[in-house]
Write a protein that binds this DNA or RNA. Sequence first.
DNA 1: CGCCGTGTTGACCAGTTTCAAGATTGGTGG
DNA 2: CCACCAATCTTGAAACTGGTCAACACGGCG
Lengths: 239, 239
Amino acid sequence: MSVAEMTRLAVPPSLVWPFAGDASGGVPAGANVELRELERHGSKLRFKRGETLFNEGDPAEHAYRLVSGAVRLCKHMADGRRQIAEFILPGDFFSFGETVEHDFTAEAMSDVVLVCYPQRAMERLADERPGLRNFSRSLLRRRIDDAENHLVMLGRQTAKEKVASFLVLLAQRSHTHENSRLALPMSRQDIADFVGLTMETVSRVLSAMKREKLIELPGLHELVIRDLESLHALADGEE
Amino acid sequence: MSVAEMTRLAVPPSLVWPFAGDASGGVPAGANVELRELERHGSKLRFKRGETLFNEGDPAEHAYRLVSGAVRLCKHMADGRRQIAEFILPGDFFSFGETVEHDFTAEAMSDVVLVCYPQRAMERLADERPGLRNFSRSLLRRRIDDAENHLVMLGRQTAKEKVASFLVLLAQRSHTHENSRLALPMSRQDIADFVGLTMETVSRVLSAMKREKLIELPGLHELVIRDLESLHALADGEE
DNA sequence: CGCCGTGTTGACCAGTTTCAAGATTGGTGG
DNA sequence: CCACCAATCTTGAAACTGGTCAACACGGCG
C-alpha cells in the first residue's frame, strides 16, 4: 500500500467535510451554512509527495483545506535546521488569516488533494457573515492553543515525553482508540523536527516503547497504540 | 530604584496608548476610533509583584492591556516545570479572544497596573465594528506569529542562540537602540523558562556575552546591548 | 551593617547528539 | 513473483552540550 493510499484511508470520507471531528472547536451552530457558501469559492488542487505547496514569504493569496494525504508546515533556518510547526491531516484547514505572506513553508508528505479558497473572497464574505467570522476566529484560537502546548513540549519535556506527547496528539487527531492501526504518514525525520530531537533519538525512543509494549509498529508508516494510558502519563511527565 | 519604578520608566507614557510602537501590527486605519470606544468599557486594576492575575483554566471573563510593570504568561506542568509563553510589557494586550477559559497563568513580575475589558462587551461591540474586529484579529495573528518563531527557538536553537534570540526580541519590543540602557524586569529563572534552559545556563551564557563585549549588565535588571549586529547573527545561527 | 533572596561559578554527570555501520523496507524492473 | 536497489530506519560507541548539585558572591532592603 502506498503512503498516499494509506493516508487517504486514515479518515473516512464522511468526516472530511464539513468538519473533521473535534477540529471544529468552538464553531457555533449555523456556521455550517456559511461554510457551504464558502465552498463555492474553493477549487481543487493536487500535489505529489515531496512537492512544496508554497514557501515561507510567498504572497498568501489562498487558504486551504486538506482533502487527502498529509502536509507539514515548517520553518527553515539559514543552515538547514528545520522546525515543523504543524502536521496537516485530512479535514484540516490551514493558512487562514495570513493576508500578506505565508509565514511557513508547506510541503506534501504524500500525494495530496486539497481545496483552496481565495483570501480576498473570504474576507469579503466574512464581512457580511458572522458565522464565517466566528469560524475563522476559532481556527486562529485553535492554532494558538496548539502552538502554546507545543511550546511546553519543546521547551520543557524530555525525549521520552516528547515522543509520547506526539503519539498522543496523533491519536487524538486521528480519533483513534487503543489497539487500532493508525497511519503515520510522516518520516522519522519529520517527527524529529516536530518534537525537537534528532531522528536517531526518536527511533531509539520508539524502539524502547515497542519493547515496553506501549506501541507496535507493523510498518514504518503504521502505528498501533497498545497502552494509551501509559503514553498519556508519560506525556504529562508522570514517571 | 525598585523594580516597579524601573519598568514604569521603560516605556514613555506617550507610547502606552493607543499603541506601543510596532505592537499595532496590521491594525487598519480607523481602528483607533473604535479602540477609544472600547476604552469606555475598561477599568483599572493593580497587582503587586509576585501576585497571580489569573490561573490557567479560570473562566476568561476579561481581556487586558498592561499599563505599567511587567507580566509573564506561563504554563505549568504537574511536577512544577514551567514554560513561559510570552512576556507582557506596557502597552501589550493579552488574553484577547479567550472566550471560555484562560489557557495560561498570568503572574506579575513587578508591581503592575492594567486595564481590563469584559469579553462579553467586546464581543458585542465587535459585532457592529469592523475596525475592532480587525484589531482583535491582528492580535491573534501576531500571537500566532510570535508563538511559531518561539517554536523554532525552543526546538532547534542552541543555548547561546536562544539567549541571543531572547535579547534581540527584548530589544525589538523595547524599541531600543544599541548602547542605551533597557529594563530587564524578569529574573534569570524567568528567562530560562522562556528559552527552555536552566537558570545556570542562562547565567553562564550572559557572562560569556559580557566577556565578549556583546552586552553589559550594569545591574541585575538592567541591560545594555553593545553589539546588536552580532546578537542578530547569533540568533540566526550564523556562527 | 548584616541578612536573605537571587545570581554566579565550578566540578561532575546525564541525556542527547554525532558519527558510522548495518538492517529493513518499499519500490522497480526483470 | 522474486530479486535487487536506494532510501530510510535502527543500533552502537564516543563526544558534547546543557543539567545538576553545591559552594560562594552579590546586592537590595531592613
